[in-house]
Amino acid sequence: MKPFCCALLWALASFVTSGVASAGALRVVPVTLDLAAPAATGAITLRNEGTQPANVQIRVFRWMQGADGQDALQPTTDVVASPPAATLAPGASYVVRVVRAGGPASGGEESYRLLIDELPTAGRVQPGRISLLVRQSIPVFFSGLEVSAPQLQWQVSAGRSGVTVTATNGGSRRQKIADMSLATASGQLLADRKGLAGYVLGGSSRSWSFPAARNVKPGTAVVLNAASDNNRIRVQATVQAAK
């Protein structure tokens, strides 16, 4: 599976942890769409809080996790955003509908990402400077009637570049992970990752690297702590050799 996204996308996505996402003058509410059958349509509201008009492009991608344990986006026509583009005057709000084209989901949980790009306008372009897009990434979930709770299995492996932690989700519903830390069995902190670490999608695996723990050897007993949607995670594991 070839990833469609770049590191910038996920860096921007990582700060979306509250009920409102803000990048520059553009605000988005809500920051997650979670639609359970029979619902097949949701909506987000964009608001331009700046003093210049904002040109916005909205696209939807299927969100998957590959064999390498990393996030990947693929083009899709299964879910569409309407309208796909808009110009917001200063202080204006705009509602974007997100529609699953085939109606309600019938199986487990489907995961998508809504990419909202604020495009440079003529008034913001300055000679001799590079104008960058401002991008926000909103998770969108459609679930059917047979969604099973997340069931995570954890593995810790060590290689030359440090420790890799992998979570495999045996359920069909995603699990959000945040505030990860890795410590020895005696409590010595080896490495940590503050804030939102990402999601483990249903039936998928997600991996995180901890370069700061590069001195950890296979066979070491470690304790992984993290926060999830509704509880704390504490896992005791023995470090395996990286394959």
Results as ranks from 00 to 15, higher is better:
residue 1 M to Q: 14
residue 8 L to A: 14
residue 10 W to G: 00
residue 15 F to S: 09
residue 15 F to Q: 08
residue 18 S to W: 09
residue 25 A to M: 09
residue 25 A to V: 12
residue 27 R to P: 02
residue 33 L to P: 09
residue 34 D to N: 13
residue 36 A to Q: 15
residue 37 A to K: 10
residue 37 A to D: 13
residue 38 P to T: 13
residue 41 T to Q: 13
residue 45 T to H: 06
residue 48 N to M: 09
residue 55 N to R: 15
residue 56 V to C: 05
residue 58 I to V: 13
residue 59 R to W: 03
residue 60 V to Q: 07
residue 61 F to I: 04
residue 63 W to P: 02
residue 64 M to W: 11
residue 65 Q to T: 09
residue 71 D to V: 04
residue 72 A to G: 14
residue 74 Q to H: 14
residue 82 S to Q: 14
residue 82 S to N: 14
residue 91 G to H: 10
residue 92 A to T: 06
residue 95 V to Y: 10
residue 96 V to D: 08
residue 97 R to V: 08
residue 97 R to C: 07
residue 100 R to H: 08
residue 115 L to D: 02
residue 120 P to F: 04
residue 133 L to W: 08
residue 140 V to K: 06
residue 141 F to T: 10
residue 143 S to H: 09
residue 143 S to N: 10
residue 143 S to A: 13
residue 147 V to K: 09
residue 149 A to I: 11
residue 163 V to H: 00
residue 168 T to S: 10
residue 169 N to A: 03
residue 180 M to P: 00
residue 182 L to W: 00
residue 186 S to E: 13
residue 189 L to A: 09
residue 192 D to G: 01
residue 196 L to R: 10
residue 200 V to G: 01
residue 200 V to L: 00
residue 201 L to Y: 07
residue 209 S to L: 06
residue 210 F to M: 04
residue 212 A to V: 02
residue 217 K to Y: 01
residue 218 P to G: 07
residue 220 T to N: 02
residue 224 L to D: 00
residue 226 A to V: 04
residue 227 A to C: 08
residue 228 S to W: 02
residue 228 S to N: 08
residue 229 D to Q: 13
residue 229 D to I: 02
residue 232 R to G: 14
residue 233 I to V: 15
residue 234 R to C: 04
residue 242 A to V: 08
